[in-house]
Amino acid sequence: MVPRESGFHVLTRPEKWPQYLGGMLTETAFILALTALAFGMAVIAIAVWR
């Protein structure tokens, strides 16, 4: 049997998953950093108000 050249088979080969999960972790890390940044902004806003 010749493996199919297109479709989910190619995209979901086992060796690709570490990279995919790495991508997800990068995304999550960025979002949490963004939350921290926004928290910084909030601290400034509260400080200014006080």
Binding site: T26, F30, L34, L37, A38, G40, M41, A42, V48
Partner: peptide
């Protein structure tokens, strides 16, 4: 997901999003 990790801090959209999100947070918190 295909290994270009740097993209997340270089992309025009993530930068734009980070800036406008923090600015609006600033206004609303105030």
């Amino acid at each position: 997901w295909t290994g270009k990790r740097k993209e997340i801090i270089r992309n025009v959209e993530t930068i734009s999003f980070a800036i406008t999100l923090s600015l609006t947070t600033l206004i609303a918190t105030y």
